[in-house]
Amino acid sequence: MLQVNDLHVSVEGNEILKGLTLTIKAGEVHAIMGPNGAGKSTLSAVIAGKDGYEVTQGTITFEGKDVLEMEIEERAQAGLLLGFQYPVEIPGVKNIYLLKSALNAQRVARGEGEMPAPEFMKLVKEKLGYMKMDASFLQRAVNEGFSGGEKKRNEILQMLVLQPKLAMLDEIDSGLDIDAMKIVADGVNSLRAEDRAILLVTHYQRLLDYIVPDKVHVLVDGRIVKTGDAELAKQLEANGYEGIEESVA
């Protein structure tokens, strides 16, 4: 589904990713872990298309298409969706409007036509229930005045409504208490499907107790230095990243 090959990325002349290679297949849940500054967030930002990241070498393909040639919105329309570590507040744009216009923009781009309003409302209601969010959230401006936990739940709500093929979640656990973490994890787990992949970027192993990944990658200094299964995350929890760095060195 997603193929990242020898990816080199610079930000303002500093090379952050130094030859990252990663393959994600449909149905898999991958976790990328690593110390601060390793380039974890850079990877998801580059895949989503954020400005300011220069790809100096390598390729990213999604279902055979060259992601780097696609506009930001085309990536989303193709099914690549990023959940932000720091969701941005959008004053004056209601949550429900964002959900409906985003969903319909994606459906129209895929030639599916807009979803009728009653069907849309039914869908949203069901997903709100999953995220234990009140319908009043729909009328509020996107993330405006939301607590940290509410913002993260809102990101997952968008995932549940938009149903991406590849959901990338950047530090979705940061700033969450244990109850909010469970709700977020339940939401993410409900996304698991044979035709969908999930990429979790996280600093802590804690999240992976709730969302058990198929593969864990350790990212250090711009490269994946080790790949394993869920057990690898537990080792990291016990020994820290330094152990890995030493063993690689």
Partner: peptide, 9 residues
């Protein structure tokens, strides 16, 4: 950027 990442042109 945030809106575009949701598929809105």
């Amino acid at each position: 950027y945030a809106l575009r990442t949701r598929g809105i042109d």
